[in-house]
Nucleic acid binder design. Sequence first.
DNA 1: CCTGTTGTATTCGTCGGACCAATTGCCGCG
DNA 2: CGCGGCAATTGGTCCGACGAATACAACAGG
Lengths: 235, 235
Amino acid sequence: MGSEDNWTSRSHRTAVRIGTAILAGEHPPGAPLHKEADLAAELDVSRNTLREAMKILASKSLVEVSPRRGTTVLPRERWNVLDPDVLDWSTTGLRDGSDLLEELLDTRAVIEPAAAEGAARHGTPADKARIRAAWEVMQSYADSDDIPAKVAVDLDWHIAVASASHNRFLVSIMGSIAHVLGEHLRHLNDREGNYEGNLANHRRVTEAIEASDAATARATMVLLVAQARSDTRRL
Amino acid sequence: MGSEDNWTSRSHRTAVRIGTAILAGEHPPGAPLHKEADLAAELDVSRNTLREAMKILASKSLVEVSPRRGTTVLPRERWNVLDPDVLDWSTTGLRDGSDLLEELLDTRAVIEPAAAEGAARHGTPADKARIRAAWEVMQSYADSDDIPAKVAVDLDWHIAVASASHNRFLVSIMGSIAHVLGEHLRHLNDREGNYEGNLANHRRVTEAIEASDAATARATMVLLVAQARSDTRRL
DNA sequence: CCTGTTGTATTCGTCGGACCAATTGCCGCG
DNA sequence: CGCGGCAATTGGTCCGACGAATACAACAGG
């Protein structure tokens, strides 16, 4: 397994450009964008490519495009924030105060204990092996300075736990917030190293899941997220 | 209803066709689809339109299309199930046994109490007024036989609660599952009428939120979802 | 026989132009 | 002043073309 797409197509890049602009608040909701021909010219792409980009944005409910009325930016409530891309773009234009982080932590505090409980309850041996494997990799990186790698394996572990719950909604939610969570973890990690405590928390959850102890799995995961929250507060 | 909402664009319709086919399991994950030219011919659309449809599906992580390798169906874990469209499509191919309902209830049991608690904690007077208004409309429909209307106002109430939490993730999650939830509610409603009990549950939550009593709001919402679960089990 | 190199065909990515349909908004008529 | 019809605008779709990258096969060398 390796990496994601290093190369982005032109249509995808234009979607990103317009998407980030919208997320950054440059195009107020309800405001009409320029017509396709003009926009294509401005962004220096063909109308075809521009339309493909629009289809992406429309499929995320960021904009609505109707014949003869042009493309309008939808109100914030409408666009689906859980889309990984949308979530991704919103971090780039993330203004500091960022209730986003607080909301992320609240959501994690809700989702992750449920996922841990589900994993303990419904996880197959293979699922549990994957979780343990992820944890062992985490452990092996304990003394490493490779922050991105540490974050990656941390994320792997969380995703493995969610997957083991066999609840597609929880899995998808974790997958969605993974990127934002990754940035958050990176922020925490390169700040200072209470990595041992973090590792120990992960180990407790791992063992509880392996033992199919749903209550303990939930409880330990609650602690883990609470720890993350207090770590965050300290910055 | 017999239907005909066919003023949707052709590209969108194509996306729906392929999307539902994938969700129905006709195209096993990892399997390559036909090349663009062939697929376009099969579906009787131009390659341009087909590509726009593909952009939609790719943006939902249902498929991945790379140059020279063609389009392949991504593994189930990858595609974002919370996308309203994807969620919608998965219900069409939903066979009754389906764990989808069970997973939905599990997710609701996690999300909704948190939303209620958040609403009690962070809800503004306007938010609370909206929740109460929604509940009163629900009440006014108590003796009505207009199932769709009852479902609609029920959904309104739940969405109002989520909105009041001011957590964009919870809001978006509720918005995403609203459609499936609606179908579920319709199923429950036209089965039999314990609408009074349901209404009472909603009232308790509403009042707790109005009183900014987070603990009670959470507890009553837990009961509400549990009631929905037991009602479901009985069918 | 196996391995590394080269060449070619295939397939997606992008482009520009063209036409169609429908809706909007104007304009003239009653 | 209101109403109905006409025309312009704009998105929706199609077509044909070219380019670039690469998977695959043919080939040469060990």
